[in-house]
Structure formats: C-alpha cells, structure tokens
C-alpha cells in the first residue's frame, strides 16, 4: 500500500505567491493541486491562502479560484458541485479553508454540505490560529499555545473537528501533514475518487505564528507526528487505517518536549499544562488504536 506515488511535475502555483518564507500551507497546496490536476476549482474563504493568491488583477494560482465570505465556503462549493454535475462535468470542487474558517466560522455550512452529501472535497489546512489577521486563537489552537489573544497560553483544548466530521459518516476522511507531501498527495488523489463529501485535515506549521525559524517547517511537522501531537490516518467507509509514521508514534513517541521546545508559542508553558497535553495525546492514540483494531 505504501508505494511511492508518481507525482506529476506540473506546478499549479506560479512563482511565487506572497506567502511568508517557509510557509507550509503553500507546500501543502502545491501537492493538493498536483493531485487534483487542472480540472479543479478551489473555493477559498478569507484566510492566508486567499491573501497569498496575489493582488488583483494578477494571481499566482493557475486553477480557477472562487473567493467567498467565511461562513459560505461549503455552501458555495455545494452549489458549484451541483451545477457541474448537472452539466455532466466531473470537475473537482475543493473547498480550501483555514482552521478558523473551518472549526469556527464555516462549520455550519460545512455540516450542511456533508449532510446533503455534496460531491466535493473539503480541505482544512490547520496552522492552529487566525494567521492572516495576526495569529489570534482559534478552535484549532492547542492548549497552552500563546497567540495574540491568549498571551499567557490558551486555556481550552483543541476542538476535535475530525470527530465532528466522522459523525456525518462521510465515505472518506483523512488527516495529513504538510511535512509528508507524498502521503498528502496520495490522500487527495484518493479522496477525489469518491462520489460524495470527503474531508482532509492538514496540519500546516507556520513559522511566524508558531514562532520558529523559517527553515524548520518540515521538521516541525515531523516532530508533531512523531510525538503523537498529530496523528496521520484515513477513515474509509468507517474503516480506520492509521499511517505508518503514526503507528511508530503509538509504539514509541518521542518526548513531547522535543516538539514544544523549538516553538516560541509554547515558551514558558507550565509543567501541569504539558502533563495535560501528554495525557490527552495518550488517550487519543489509545482511542484510535482501539478503533483501528475493531474496524
């Protein structure tokens, strides 16, 4: 199953966007579009991605993009998908939104689209805060992380959007991480083969937001997975498969501190909060391992 996929040479993002140096959202989108190919429309609500496209009348994105208000991304994608299918077209409709736009602001329209069985792929790239407005906390921000609105560290847990999506029982959902572009490519390719609503949640380390230096984005994503803070898996018609990298983390995770220490957003985090994070990681890994064993 883990064969290395043939990744097309074509790039669908022209040089260059205005994304920050080292932005892993850009890295993720590069592979999302390689997997989706030219017959694709992106629906992008307000987020870093809508900013880095470029400034009117120019764009760096070489596929059609429809920019839409936060709360309406999935509703817009629903209508677009229905229109394409009614016209007999197979065009991929991909809603591509941030964690703020997904876990908080766009959740209602997204839930509706999943309930209605819209034939589309919803991708949430998760940099764990409202990035483009200057890193305010979102439902995706982890416990203990400093943001501009949680200057002493967030006191609430990260919202489990994947469990919320799972409750809609979609044919396919997956998690991915920008540090594993081949894995991401495979998952996007697969998601687009299903008729119906599919979901991919991508962890996208963000240098200015997480406060680490620009060269460490891939390293940070790998540390997230190796520590179990982020888990790679797919759920296909309810059957869960945990990725090899995360299986290794279940057997023997690296110390969580190795992931937290290089990031300025966790600077000065108190040991009790670290303990809570560790307990939550252990509980989550055990829950997923049990689900996989039972499915």
């Amino acid at each position: 199953m883990d064969t290395i996929p043939e990744i097309p040479k074509e790039e669908y993002i022209l040089k260059c966007t205005s994304a920050c140096a080292g932005c892993s959202d850009s890295l993720a989108l590069r592979y999302v579009l390689k997997a989706a190919g030219p017959d694709t429309v992106l629906v992008v609500p307000a987020c870093c991605t809508s900013v880095i496209q470029g400034i009117y009348p120019n764009t760096a994105f070489n596929v059609p993009v429809y920019n839409i208000a936060f709360a309406s991304a999935a509703a817009c994608a629903s209508g677009m998908s229905n229109a394409f299918r009614a016209a007999g077209k197979k065009t991929n409709v991909i809603a591509y939104a941030g964690d703020g736009g997904t876990l908080d602001i766009g959740i209602q329209a997204m839930s509706g689209a999943f309930e209605r069985g819209t034939d589309f792929l919803y991708i949430c790239y998760d940099n764990e805060a409202y990035g483009n407005t200057g890193m305010q906390r979102s439902g995706g921000t982890p416990l203990g992380a400093r943001t501009t609105t949680t200057p002493t560290g967030k006191t609430d847990n990260k919202k489990d959007i994947d469990a919320i999506i799972a409750a809609h029982d979609p044919p396919y959902q997956a998690t991915a991480c920008a540090a594993y572009p081949q894995d991401l490519f495979k998952k996007v390719t697969k998601a687009l083969t299903f008729r119906g609503p599919t979901f991919i949640h991508i962890l996208a380390p963000c240098p200015p937001g997480w406060r680490y230096s620009t060269e460490k984005s891939v390293e940070m994503g790998k540390l997230a997975v190796k520590s179990g803070m982020w888990v790679l898996y797919e759920r296909e018609y309810g059957k869960l498969t945990i990725g090899a990298q995360s299986k290794a983390a279940i057997k023997k995770p690296i110390p969580l501190e190795d992931y937290l220490a290089p990031q300025g957003r966790f600077k000065g985090i108190d040991p009790k909060t670290v303990d809570i994070l560790k307990q939550r990681i252990a509980k989550n890994l055990a829950k997923l391992a049990a689900e996989e064993a039972a499915s």
């Binding site: 040479k9 790039e11 993002i13 040089k15 260059c16 966007t17 994304a19 920050c20 140096a21 080292g22 932005c23 892993s24 850009s26 890295l27 590069r30 240098p207 230096s213 620009t214 060269e215 460490k216 984005s217 891939v218 390293e219």
Partner: peptide
Amino acid sequence: PDAAIDAELDVDLVFCKGGGICANE
C-alpha cells in the same frame, strides 16, 4: 514550498525567498 528548485535542482534566485527548508532537509 514555492517550487523554486527545478527538476535539475537549480534554484530560481529571482523568486527563492531564502526560507531554508531545502538546506534543513
């Protein structure tokens, strides 16, 4: 992230932002 290194592994210095992920990885 910006596809600034081509298949021949030459860096396009007109666009490379100097983030350094290439060097790190």
